[in-house]
């Protein structure tokens, strides 16, 4: 259990099936505190389902999912898990299109989740300062008053990452952050994530090999719902099984 105890995320033997199709097949994965981990794998390997399980959207049929070494996540719902400190970015950028960039971030700010509490909430110097800081980090200060719907695709991705940061989570789950980004945006995103990884644990799911190489972190390869290989990108990319099932010859 010491592995579990020292981890920030711990998945053991997690299985999920949908109508007979095994989306996750006895998946086991350990993420250490402060670690950044890249997850790659072909379509249908179970990457998104794994995130669903961790964030409480999907309940596993069997297996153990623990956070921070002890907390069992399988009985909690999305909001409870989010409050524990697990933030998630969706594959498709999901921000509140009809609100400004600022408002988006302000809604994500940690604290104030109750109904009455948020009814009576007023922006404070502190919260404004924190918003400014976040805007700086995600490089959106210049468009702070703009509606989220007017942002470019890449900017929406950053805004969503910013909202994650505003939650002040311990772990960030980031699903395909650079899908559909231009090269320079991709590069900036990698920089942003590395910066974030300095004081957060981050799990990144990505297809883009150049981006993963850019991140330069430990890589886990998923296939058919379980772990195929683990190690640095250089190690896994010469792994026979990985080449066969994913990278191709």
């Amino acid at each position: 259990m010491s592995v579990a105890a020292n981890s920030i995320l711990y998945l053991d033997g997690v299985t999920v099936s949908f109508d007979g199709f095994r989306a996750l097949n006895s998946l086991s994965l350990v993420v250490e505190p402060g670690e950044m981990r890249a997850i790659i794998g072909p379509n249908g390997a179970g990457k998104t389902t794994m995130m669903d399980v961790i964030t409480g959207k999907t309940r596993p049929d069997e297996g153990d999912v623990r956070f921070d070494g002890k907390i069992d996540l399988t009985n909690l719902d999305e909001a409870e898990i989010a409050e524990l400190g697990i933030g998630r970015k969706f594959q498709k950028p999901t921000v509140f299109e009809h609100q400004t960039v600022e408002e988006n971030l302000s809604l994500a700010l940690a604290g104030t989740r109750g109904v009455l509490e948020s009814f009576l909430w007023f922006a404070s110097a502190e919260s404004n300062e924190r918003t400014d800081e976040l805007l700086e980090t995600i490089r959106l200060t210049s468009v702070r008053k703009a509606l989220a719907s007017s942002l470019s695709h890449g900017q929406k991705q950053w805004l969503e990452i910013g909202m994650l940061l505003a939650q002040d989570p311990k772990v960030l789950l980031v699903d395909e952050p650079v899908a559909g980004m231009t090269d320079s945006e991709t590069e900036q995103t990698a920089k942003l994530l590395r910066e974030i990884a300095k004081d957060h644990s981050v799990v990144v799911v990505e297809h883009d090999m150049a981006f993963v190489r850019d991140l330069d972190v430990k890589v886990t390869v998923l296939a058919e719902g379980s772990v195929l290989a683990e190690g640095s990108l250089d190690v896994v990319s010469v792994n026979e099984k990985v080449i066969e099932s994913y990278l191709g010859r």
């Binding site: 909001a79 994500a108 948020s118 939650q167």
Partner: peptide
């Protein structure tokens, strides 16, 4: 109010609100 913003956010992207830690059903 901020609660109103949360409601609008629920209208536009319910699951995002949930993953931010809000109890959508209570709102």
């Amino acid at each position: 109010s901020r609660a109103g913003k949360v409601l609008e956010a629920i209208r536009d992207a319910e699951s995002r609100v949930r993953f931010l830690g809000y109890r959508v059903e209570r709102y």
